[in-house]
Nucleic acid binder design. Structure first.
Length: 267
DNA sequence: ATGACCTCCCGTGGAGGA
């Protein structure tokens, strides 16, 4: 079972890249962010022709999230977080697929700091954390995947000292991420690659990809049961080198259908 | 300190991204 997350930065402008990557990587489940398209412009026909069913939560111009499932439509369980006001930004969608709850999220960027956008980011993050606690209480397999717009540690930034006052690295946001993870989630990429520099995003500016000046901001958080199935967690870096590509690369995890890792002990 | 690059929009530059 292969689950991927990919901030496509425009699902229609990026359709050729997305279809090529789907064909090459053949993930079973895909979380997409930054569709930048309203619901009626989501390219469902092309995605179905590629062999995937989908549910999506679009918005004109900005944001937008979707969940793809190979060979069938995901069972939609939620659009938006609890507490989202009417006509809010499309940043969360959730579905049941293959016996798991898949939460696909696009956390607000929050720049510039300080300001109302930063406050909105913290507020959204807190509501995500409250809702994530409810998911854990269900004691069902859950994967929260997406663009969290936070580098959790200095290891996740090519040059940490340049990012201390950026909304993606402010201490308040890193602490919010820690509060979420410490509920009992496993950060899949970091779990299998401790101490390793892993990036999922490279700026379009200044040849950032060529210099490997990247950030790790796309994450998989696994509920305790799912964490015992974790076999592999990787980033498809090569996709970032393609023509007309997103500034994010797809990331993915491989899950076994039986426990292969011991649960971590607390304390 | 700024801008560089890319996407979207009824746009012909501006906003947002990170």
């Amino acid at each position: 079972m292969k689950i991927a997350t990919y901030n496509v930065n425009g699902v229609n402008g990026r359709l050729d890249v997305l279809l090529r990557w789907l064909a090459e990587a053949s993930p079973d489940i895909v979380c997409l962010q930054e569709l930048k398209a309203p619901d009626n412009k989501f390219p469902i026909q092309a995605i179905e022709q590629a062999g995937y069913g989908a549910v999506w939560h679009g918005q004109k111009s900005w944001n937008g999230v979707a969940i793809l499932s190979k060979g069938g439509e995901p069972l939609l369980t939620r659009k938006g977080l609890p507490g989202d006001f009417e006509a809010s930004q499309s940043r969360y969608i959730e579905a049941a697929v293959a016996g798991m709850v898949i939460g696909c999220l696009y956390l607000p960027n929050g720049n510039p700091y300080p300001g109302p956008k930063f406050e909105y980011k913290l507020e959204w993050f807190n509501r995500l954390t409250d809702y994530a606690a409810e998911l854990l209480e269900l004691e069902v397999p859950v994967v929260l995947a997406g663009d969290f717009n936070v580098m959790p540690t200095e290891l996740d930034v090519y040059k940490p000292e340049r990012w201390t006052d950026d909304a993606l690295f402010r201490i308040e946001v890193r602490e919010a991420y820690w509060r979420l993870v410490s509920q009992g989630w496993t950060d899949a990429l970091r779990e299998l690659h401790p101490g390793e520099r892993i990036y999922t995003f490279w700026d379009y500016f200044r040849n950032a990809f060529g210099r490997d000046a990247g950030l790790r901001i796309d994450h998989f958080l696994l509920s305790p049961g799912v964490a015992t199935w974790l076999v592999k967690a990787e980033v498809d870096r090569k996709v970032r080198g393609w023509e007309h590509t997103s500034d994010h690369a797809p990331a993915w995890i491989e899950l076994s259908d039986r426990p292969i890792r011991r649960r971590k002990h607390n304390g």
